[in-house]
Design a protein around this nucleic acid. Sequence first.
DNA 1: TAGATTGTTAATCGATTAACAATC
DNA 2: TAGATTGTTAATCGATTAACAATC
Lengths: 209, 209
Amino acid sequence: MNDTSSVPDIVISRLPSYLQTLNQMAKEGWHTVSSKVLAERVGTTAAQIRKDLSFFGGFGKQGTGYSIYHLIEQLQKILNMDRVWSAIIVGAGDLGRALARYQGFAQRGIEIAMLFDIDPKIVGTQIGSVVVRHVDTMESEIQKNNFKISIITVPAAVAQIIANRLVEAGIQAILNYAPVTLIVPGSVQLQNIDPVLQLQRTLYYLSDD
Amino acid sequence: MNDTSSVPDIVISRLPSYLQTLNQMAKEGWHTVSSKVLAERVGTTAAQIRKDLSFFGGFGKQGTGYSIYHLIEQLQKILNMDRVWSAIIVGAGDLGRALARYQGFAQRGIEIAMLFDIDPKIVGTQIGSVVVRHVDTMESEIQKNNFKISIITVPAAVAQIIANRLVEAGIQAILNYAPVTLIVPGSVQLQNIDPVLQLQRTLYYLSDD
DNA sequence: TAGATTGTTAATCGATTAACAATC
DNA sequence: TAGATTGTTAATCGATTAACAATC
């Protein structure tokens, strides 16, 4: 997953949540924040935040902390978030349609550009701001528009087939909602969302009434 | 989060995915599996699987591997998954409704028992197999039915307030879809799902065309 | 028996935390 | 200046991996 870079994967994975909290604090009117205060809001430790940021340079001032505006700007640049990314959704079932209408993507820099499905009955219908396209046109649209990001919301049984086609067409990041372990090349970023799996992780700790 | 137990949290968090793969293999007709083969399917290493399982005892046979049926049974018992758990959903927007209709919960042992919302226009309407109830009745239903698990799909602005009310009413596990960092007592299991955050984690690795 | 594979111990690796000199 | 807080180094902690005797 992480070949050349010297920054650990786990550090990268924490930066977006720092950014989210910083944006929230900016909206609340803060201008400056110490690693201690930021850590409390994020739910981590001051040392970890300073360590994580130090992989990319020194963004703070001793005695004062960090300029929130400046840190947001820097983190966005580091994470390639200083631009809008287009994403496509494959599978226009309940979940795919709910995601297509979800405003949170556009609000945070991800544009849902297209939505694909195989069912001729829904191909052509409007969901949110996009029209459902037939999945047979998926590869050509990916290549024509140079899409790099795809969200998979098809049934588990066909998720791997779709993933193969996406990778073949040039997709570099996949957010998979199907409850299966997808196999993709190491060069492709794979993130999984399975609410059932996440709930199952908590059951061990629950008291049986 | 993990007070008394000697089993690391991270081990517990991997067991449900082992179980998922074992169930898949059972459906494909396998009866026995080695740690090596299971590891390949799960996407981990044989050593890690054997180490993880060894926290709970010896489930395999040298030279043969593991009986899939037996291992499934044992893991389900360990994870408190040898029963059906009821969960409630708070927030009947697009996402809450999509989750209420999602068959994957029931198929894997989670029953969506109730769905709450504050909007009088949708209270009383049927979504999947449940009727939307007013959120004012949430606490009393939690206590009456002894619900332990809740899914939060309300807007970010009210997610913390809802979380507080859920915890106060006795909920022990929360699956949060709102894009905010919730503060809950250490005794409450919190899992977050934020698709935007997960996609942002991948942008760092994408090549800009 | 010979081959395969477990469960476990020891070695390695990597991540987190603590501490503090530097400095705003 | 005195107090606060950074960036970084070293110490600690915990998780993963490797190795292998035990044994099916």
